[in-house]
């Protein structure tokens, strides 16, 4: 389990847990970033991170991206949804 900032462009990752205050969590959750969601890293750190979730693109500041812990998601998981 590594923070989102640790992944390179193009990696597919599964969100495991989100640390941090309620404000951050609630924002991310309402955008679909909940534990279990599979996202693709479009633009990695340094600087703000962009991830793609289904067909939406979400920008996370470095501070926020550090709080999202993920694991690598195998390609197959994608089609499960």
């Amino acid at each position: 389990m590594r923070p989102l900032t640790a992944y390179s462009a193009g990696s597919r990752v599964k969100v495991c847990s989100i640390k941090g205050g309620r404000g951050v969590k609630s924002r991310l959750e309402s955008l679909g970033l909940v534990p279990g969601a599979v996202v693709e890293v479009v633009k990695p750190a340094p600087g703000p991170v962009i991830v793609k979730l289904n067909s939406s693109r979400i920008v996370l500041g470095v501070g926020e991206a550090m709080k999202v812990y993920c694991e690598s998601a195998p390609e197959a998981l994608d089609e499960a949804v």
Partner: peptide, 10 residues
């Protein structure tokens, strides 16, 4: 400052 979380519209 508060979290930077934003959607990039298509």
């Amino acid at each position: 400052s508060r979290p930077f979380i934003m959607e990039l519209p298509p």
